[in-house]
């Protein structure tokens, strides 16, 4: 069972690495969205610093929604997905492998570039550290929850927008605690409580989301 997890993980990462333009586009979408806010709001550092956690988090949410559209699409089109549905291994495990691969190639780059963007917003070193930790804990949850939506909207017209419409309300807790942790650190309250909650959400999503996505995939690929 672990074999198929590893194989699928490597396969998806390799496939993603072969079409790197998609990944770079996703990363630049994140960078551009974050960089647009100062242009819209004004270059006042005090204001920017205040909104930075929220801006980075909303941008990460949008970028991960955009990327999620592709998580099952290619496998669905060439029929690989049907073969996965037919394997004796549990489908939830395969989905977990796909989501993990997806997060490694789309989520981790966002986490790595976030400190640079945080510097643009004049965040302190401590805030940057917390921002990275929240993104590390939060973006996998976004990918997991988003996978349910991606499975439900598989093969539909306008699936991407629809997926965002379905998933975004469900990701609000992640956004709240993610941005909240950084703000709480900035105001001296300490963001450790938020981090615990983010971890709790991640654990719950790790367990439930693959099951729900598996049920959704079986319906969509019928």
């Amino acid at each position: 069972m672990l074999d198929i997890f590893r194989t699928l993980l490597w396969r998806d990462i390799t496939l993603a690495m072969r079409s790197r333009a998609d990944l770079v586009a996703n990363l630049f979408f994140f960078i551009i969205v974050v960089s647009l806010f100062p242009l819209g709001i004004g270059p006042e550092m005090a204001t920017l610093r205040l909104i930075a956690p929220g801006v980075v988090w909303v941008a990460a949410l949008l970028a991960s929604m955009l990327a999620l559209e592709r998580i099952f699409a290619a496998d669905y089109e060439d029929g690989t997905l049907e073969q996965m549905l037919l394997t004796p291994q549990p489908l939830a495990l395969l989905i977990l492998a796909k989501v993990a691969a997806h997060w490694l190639v789309t989520g981790v780059p966002l986490v790595l570039i976030a400190p640079v963007l945080g510097l643009q917003y004049n965040l302190s070193g401590e805030m940057l550290q917390v921002l990275i930790v929240t993104l590390l804990l939060g973006t996998p949850s976004l990918s997991l929850i988003g996978a349910i939506g991606a499975a439900l909207t598989l093969g539909l017209r306008g699936g991407g927008v629809l997926n965002a419409l379905l998933v975004m309300p469900l990701t609000i807790p992640v956004l709240i605690f993610g941005a909240g942790a950084v703000e709480a650190t900035a105001s001296g309250l300490g963001g450790i409580g938020h981090l615990y909650l983010l971890g709790a959400i991640l654990l719950a999503a790790l367990f439930f989301a693959p099951l729900a996505a598996a049920a959704a995939l079986r319906i969509s690929a019928e």
Binding site: I148, P169, A216, I219, S220
Partner: peptide
């Protein structure tokens, strides 16, 4: 059935 799953997740 897709709607049902969405409702339960919601």
């Amino acid at each position: 059935r897709a709607g049902a799953i969405l409702l339960l997740v919601g």
